[in-house]
Computed example of a mutant assay.
Amino acid sequence: MNDVAFDVDANVFRAEYDSSRDQPSLAILAVVAVAANSDPTELSPLHSVIDTAALDDLLSETATDDRRNVRLSFSYEGFSVTACSAGTVEVSPIENA
């Protein structure tokens, strides 16, 4: 996975991963850990909020053509997480209203 970058104006952490090499679920964990300034092992299990096997299958490089442009969003550890089958992860803090 490439380095995690922070866009100050958008308040978003972004990273790219190689879906032929990296599991999307692990890329998500890595970006959330950076955003939370935490070790990935200190986060709650990702599978407690989403089926990680289905997530990896849906966003993998081997996905069929009709799933090539998938964009999946969910909440995890106080962040809004968006992962794309194109190999990007974006994480932003959920603002309290």
Rank of each mutant, 00 (worst) to 15 (best):
D3T: 08
A5Q: 14
F6D: 00
D7E: 14
V8N: 09
D9S: 14
A10V: 12
V12D: 11
F13C: 05
A15Q: 00
E16N: 09
E16T: 12
Y17G: 05
Y17P: 05
S19N: 14
S20Y: 04
P24W: 13
S25H: 12
L26I: 04
A27S: 15
A27W: 00
I28K: 07
L29H: 01
L29C: 11
L29S: 02
L29P: 04
A30Q: 02
V31P: 13
V32I: 04
A33T: 13
A33H: 08
S38C: 10
S38V: 02
D39V: 04
D39N: 10
P40G: 09
L43V: 03
L43S: 05
S44L: 00
S44C: 09
L46H: 03
S48Q: 07
S48C: 08
I50C: 02
T52Y: 09
T52M: 03
A53L: 11
A54H: 01
L55Q: 01
D56M: 03
D56W: 00
D57A: 11
L59P: 00
L59F: 03
S60M: 06
S60G: 10
E61S: 11
T62K: 01
D65E: 13
D65C: 05
D65R: 01
R67V: 02
R67W: 02
R68H: 10
R68M: 03
R68Q: 09
V70T: 06
V70N: 01
R71E: 13
L72M: 07
F74G: 05
F74M: 06
S75K: 01
Y76G: 05
F79V: 01
S85H: 15
G87C: 12
G87H: 06
V89S: 13
V89N: 07
V91T: 05
S92E: 12
S92V: 07
S92W: 06
I94S: 05
I94F: 00
I94K: 03
E95F: 11
